[in-house]
């Protein structure tokens, strides 16, 4: 009798745990939906007053008089992001190729922990480094070569600091992709007389290209959402930047800078929540696409 009692308890515990775990899983899946709906709900106030189009393309930003044009911020965000990826991509590609195809084992042993640490350094530390090294460098050495005066707190500074922040992500994704390319392909290429670089360029990179695109999209969404570092080095002046040496004011910086006073002005809170919603939607789409592509690539290589 006691044995059946024990068995029943064990089975009941299993069934209970199963339900509980399912609940937890589903609730955490719903967070995505809840965040989206919550932010949308908060943005309805401003969406009701201005059309989506006028919000996205308007140039005037003066919360005091109720004008909310997000174009300067969107343009700044896009410029900073594109710039950072343009700097990071070649460096990350070459580094990853070097580490997977050419480097001696001791070099990878040194570089991997460094990438780990770079990936773990908090964004405020990157921001501090940017203000101490990159900003003065642009203001005193690099900027004067091209323009008469620049404060250093520029689009370029944001792009450089962000690129350093996404390089570890890109390199580790690339290494994963490149080492998944079957060795037979490389051997076949080598036996046809290709040099190692030709093999890397024509076989490894080409084979991994869908994955590379997905990784870049992932890096874009990381750079796009990065807040504190860009807030510290971009200058944050409202206006569309016309050169690398102009100040920029990306969306995350806008939100972080103004959360304090957003409750004091009508529609201001709603406008900032609309900015968050915008970032959420863009990053959601970018992330989902790149993840699906990466999964497909992974499956293809496994066959």
């Amino acid at each position: 009798m006691e044995h059946t009692g024990l068995l029943r308890r064990r089975v009941a515990a299993n069934a209970m745990a199963s339900k509980l775990m399912k609940l937890l899983t589903i609730i955490s899946l719903l967070t995505l939906l809840i965040i989206g709906v919550g932010l949308y709900y908060k943005s309805t106030a401003i969406l009701g007053e201005h059309s989506l189009w006028s919000l996205l393309t308007g140039k005037e930003w003066s919360p005091l008089s109720g004008q909310f044009g997000f174009r300067p911020f969107i343009v700044s965000s896009v410029y900073v992001t594109v710039l950072s990826v343009a700097i990071a991509l070649p460096v990350a590609l070459l580094t990853a190729l070097f580490l997977t195809e050419n480097a001696k084992p001791w070099i990878t042993k040194v570089v991997f922990p460094i990438l780990d640490i770079l990936a773990g350094i908090p964004s405020v530390v990157y921001g501090l480094w940017g203000t101490l090294i990159i900003v003065p460098w642009i203001a005193d050495s690099f900027g004067p070569l091209f323009v008469d005066y620049t404060s250093g707190y520029t689009l370029l500074a944001g792009g450089i600091v962000l690129s350093v922040m996404i390089i570890p992500l890109l390199v580790s994704l690339f290494i994963e992709l490149f080492s998944a390319v079957p060795k037979d392909f490389k051997d076949a290429s080598a036996s046809l007389g290709a040099t190692r670089w030709q093999t890397s360029r024509l076989v490894v990179v080409r084979k991994a290209s869908p994955g590379i695109i997905a990784a870049v999209v992932l890096a874009i969404s990381k750079a796009f959402g990065e807040t504190l570092a860009v807030l510290m080095v971009c200058g944050n002046m409202v206006g569309i930047p016309h050169s690398l040496f102009d100040s920029a004011y990306p969306l995350p910086a806008l939100i972080a800078n103004n959360y304090g006073e957003m409750l004091s002005l009508p529609k201001y809170e709603s406008a900032l929540m609309f900015a968050s919603l915008l970032m959420f939607v863009i990053i959601l789409i970018f992330n989902a696409i790149s993840r699906v592509v990466l999964q497909k690539v992974e499956q293809k290589f496994k066959l």
Binding site: I35, L39, L218, G225, S276, M279, F280, N287
Partner: peptide, 15 residues
């Protein structure tokens, strides 16, 4: 979870 991983902390914060 992959997508949630990519959502920046400022969006979590604002939400």
């Amino acid at each position: 979870f992959d997508v949630l991983f990519g959502i920046p902390s400022i969006v979590y914060g604002a939400f």
